[in-house]
Design a protein around this nucleic acid. Structure first.
Length: 282
RNA sequence: GGCCCGAUAGCUCAGUCGGUAGAGCAGUGGAUUGAAAAUUCACGUGUCGGCGGUUCAAAUCCGUCUCGGGCCA
């Protein structure tokens, strides 16, 4: 018995496929979506409806407060025991979600790297990028040569690893790279594939339903949120709508565009995960 | 009907003194092991509304027509 992973871009229909698979395989659904982890973001994050939640046992939905921060490692620590527990009862975990990095951690494990440090990050954010690059090149030239140096996030993280661990990020990362291949061959999962026009139509439909389905109230109710939750697609746009700085149509289109772009990035990510079996729906 | 303004990439628009056009957004492809719904890289040929004229050369100047918008009747 082993877990089944259901991946795919946002709005591709992962939740309903998961329900179907759960019934076929006597399974239970485990969330693999970074934002559906949070309580109070159900509508913006397009979490499963209460009807769906009732049909089959669902795990890791709404388990974090919006004020809490999380990351791929935290997610893995939450998900591992849940999956093990489901397996121990002889059921099939149906791990469902579109957060590529989270899934990658869960399936392939974490490299032995230090956890992100908010204070250090704040300090680095205040420094010029060229400065960070220079420091990384001094501490770990190999890692610097492998890093997309225009990407501030990547430079910061590489530097953060060096500073917090006192070791070279390149050495630590290499330790993890070596094991990935054999793990992949033992996994089983599906990626939902839809044509772009179909996916775009579904996104538009979902955004519309969201806007008339209570997101405004949901977002209005979220006073203090972690910087994590602020990044949810729709969150900023709806706040602007509530504040009157954005009209409804512009808001709707902004959400649609951001969602389409996200879906494309997800497709790029999952395309690389060769262990995932394509599951076309049309 | 007369006068004025506009018409350039899917959208919004820039384009100097004439030298066959470029930004933003959208879109497409990529990267991505502790912020990931994040972050980041690359990709711009389009009857310059149509036709005619001037010119070595027209998106640019002239004429005319079409379609918008406005003002006056």
């Amino acid at each position: 018995m082993q877990a089944l992973y259901i991946c795919g871009p946002t709005a591709s229909g992962k939740s309903s496929l998961a329900l179907q698979m759960a019934e076929e395989l006597d399974g239970e659904i485990v969330n693999a979506d970074a934002f559906q982890l949070y309580r109070g973001l159900e509508i913006v994050s397009a979490a499963p409806s209460s009807d769906e939640l009732r049909q089959v046992p669902h795990h890791l939905y709404g388990v974090l407060e919006p004020t809490e921060a999380a990351d791929a490692q935290v997610y893995t620590q939450l998900a591992r025991p849940v999956i093990a527990e489901i397996l121990s009862r002889g059921k099939t975990p149906i791990v469902t979600g579109g957060s590529g990095l989270y899934l990658k951690f869960l399936t392939h494990g974490a490299a032995p790297l230090p956890t992100g440090n908010p204070q250090l990050r704040a300090e680095m954010d205040a420094r010029p990028l060229a400065d960070l690059i220079a420091q990384l090149e001094a501490l770990d030239p190999l890692e610097a040569s492998r890093t997309a140096l225009q990407n501030r996030r990547f430079v910061s993280r590489a530097l953060e690893i060096c500073i917090l661990s006192g070791q070279k990020a390149s050495d630590l990362r290499d330790q993890w790279e070596s094991k990935t291949h054999e793990i992949s061959s033992q996994l089983r999962g599906l990626v939902i594939q839809r044509t772009r026009p179909d996916l775009h139509a579904r996104i538009a439909q979902r955004t519309r339903a969201m806007l008339s389905g209570g997101v405004l109230d949901e977002v209005a109710a979220l006073a203090d949120v972690s910087t994590n939750c602020e990044k949810a697609i729709g969150f900023r746009e709806i706040r602007a709508l509530l504040a009157g700085t954005l009209d409804r149509n512009t808001c709707e289109e902004a959400i649609n565009a951001a969602t389409r772009q996200y879906a494309k990035r997800q497709e790029t990510w999952f395309r690389r995960e060769k262990w995932l079996q394509p599951h076309p729906i049309s």
